[in-house]
Design a protein around this nucleic acid. Structure first.
Lengths: 172, 172
DNA sequence: CCTATCATGTAATCCGTTACATGATTAT
DNA sequence: ATAATCATGTAACGGATTACATGATAGG
């Protein structure tokens, strides 16, 4: 019986706070070098979403007394429970892949083989670049859960770089 | 210089109409067994979006004279050009993977190895099921562009099924 | 002929994005 | 001291989702 008002971003915020993030900017920093790689969102959500979660009683908010008077968030008991419950409940939603390159390929009947090859090379390069990033950070990730997810990203990029390489070689 | 008012869904609609879809329900049917596999959206968008595209002069709309008086759409010259231009312009946006299972794994520090293994088995099963679907339809897809995209989906599911199998075997 | 499901849409809500704005730090 | 950039937010808009609603068609 999970709370239907909570979106994936809600759990990203709860999870980041659980992992020690305290302010919105802190979440942004942590996310940009981890979960943000495969689940991206603008920083404004990291300011809006915590406010919602405070409303729902899942986060506590305190203001710093001086300096920037930033909002500092901590998990409430309810927030911890909501996160734990979500982690343990079955996952129904299917993976969504939002890939503009694939979309173009799908509708690319009208393109010439040369144009398709150009698209494919461009896509291969992009995936290869990300693959390199993942390979670079792979060993620096201490947290095993994070490392596993980096590995998933790495495998995905490798698969797709390879896919596009084949398309470039023999356009459909 | 593509039209900034057009979203990916806009191009899905333009593309589906270009491939012969005529009514919203027709798009829904076609999408559900092709592009919908990896880029999903509710059917209401296939009623709202064409209206927008008519506004922009990219689709023509006609009503059937009798029966259900459905709206029948056709590409305008401008619509065809917008689609062609989009197909040929460089693709800047990065692939987004929205995978709740990965998100849970990422925040799964607090889970026990057994719980992580349970998540992994559940995910492996889901990806395996999709893999089977893709393998089943693979040969039935006549359109080479569509077949290529099915192949991409197939490779993705295979990669992720394998990934989760490893996680289930040795939880981080 | 009646009922279930298919087919076609509309309305309202809200999340996510874009754009704007401004106060702190740091570098020169 | 001043400029540049970092850090922290707010406001507004619009697309995406959910929910609702109802007219056709087919099956029994």
């Amino acid at each position: 019986m999970s709370n239907p008002q909570l979106t994936p971003v809600s759990y990203v915020v709860l999870g980041l706070v659980a992992q020690g993030a305290t302010t919105s900017y802190d979440m942004k920093q942590k996310a940009s070098r981890s979960v943000g790689y495969f689940w991206n969102f603008p920083h404004s959500q990291l300011y809006a979403e915590p406010a919602r979660l405070v409303e729902l009683g899942l986060l506590d908010e305190m203001r710093e007394a001086e300096g920037r008077r930033r909002r500092v968030y901590t998990l409430t008991r309810g927030g911890r429970e909501a996160l734990d419950e979500w982690l343990r409940e079955p996952t129904t939603d299917q993976t969504q892949i939002r890939d503009t390159g694939l979309l173009k390929l799908f509708f690319g009947d009208g393109m010439s083989p040369a144009e398709i090859a150009a698209l494919a090379r461009e896509q291969e390069e992009a995936h290869q670049a990300r693959l390199t990033v993942y390979e670079t950070i792979e060993d620096a990730v201490a947290n095993p859960s994070h490392a596993a997810v980096v590995r998933a990203g790495l495998l995905h990029e490798r698969t797709f770089a390879e896919f596009w390489r084949e398309i470039a070689a023999t356009p459909p």
